[in-house]
Amino acid sequence: MSPREPRATVPVTIDGQEVDAVEGETILSLARRVGVPIPTLCYLDGLSVHGGCRLCSVEVDGDPRLRLACATPVWQDMDIRTSTWDLQEHRRRIIELLFAEGNHICATCVSSGACELQDLAATNRVDHIHYELSYADEGVDASHPKYVLDRDRCVKCTRCVRVCAEVEGASVWEIAERGGGSRLVAEMDVPWGEASSCTWCGKCVLVCPTGALSFKGRGVGEMRHDAEVVAFLSRARNEGEWVNRTDEEVPS
C-alpha cells in the first residue's frame, strides 16, 4: 500500500479504548500498534497463520465463540476484550499444558533466558503446573553438523515447518503422526544430518520459540576450535589450491 493512498480506517473498541483500526488488519496487528499486549506463540510476522497455540484468543462482543487475534480481521464497531479473567485463565491453562507435555526444564535448557515459553509463563503468571508432567523422552537429534533438535522441548508451533517451506523453500520439516504422538520430523523422518534438502540456512533455529532447535556449540563445553582452517587458507592462497574440504574437515 503506497503512503499516498492510506487505507481506510474503521472505529474499533479494544479493552474499552476507542481506536481507529486499518480496514482489513487483524486484531493482533491493531493491538500491537496501539500497545495492547496479546500473548502469541505460533504466530510470527512474515509467516502464514497457523492458529494452533490458541493463546491469542480474544472475546468479541456479541460473538459466543472466542476469536483468534492473529487470524481475525477487524470490522466496524468491533468491541474486543483481550484480557478478561476467563481469557487469562485459558491462557494459563494452555501454557501449563505445554509445560506438562514436554520436558521443559529451564535450568538445563540452552534457551533459558531467551525462551518465549518461559516468558509466557512469567507474563501470564504461571507459577506452577497443575497437570501431571510427562517427562517426555523423545531423545535428541544431534546428527546435523550445525544444529541440534531436542524434541522434548518442541511445542509443535510449526514455525520451523513454515519458515522452511515458505521462506527458504526447502520444506525439510513436517509434523508426523497425530495427537499426543505428533512429532517434528526432517524429511521422511530421517536424522536431520541426513536430510539432503536442508540448506543449512538456520532459519528454523532462528524462529524456534524454545530450546527445541538450537545452534551447536552454544552449550557448556561445546566450543570446538578449528585452527587448521588457517593452513587450508594459506595453502589455497599460496598454491592456488582451492580444493573443497572433505566432509570430515567440516568444523562441527
Binding site: F99, I105, C106, A107, T108, D127, H128, I129, L133, Y135
Partner: peptide
C-alpha cells in the same frame, strides 16, 4: 512455600524420571 524450581516442577531432580 514451594521454594525454587525443584519443589515447583521437579526440575533437575526429576530428570531421573526418564
Amino acid at each position: 512455600v514451594s521454594f525454587g524450581d525443584c519443589a515447583v516442577t521437579g526440575n533437575v531432580t526429576s530428570l531421573r524420571n526418564r
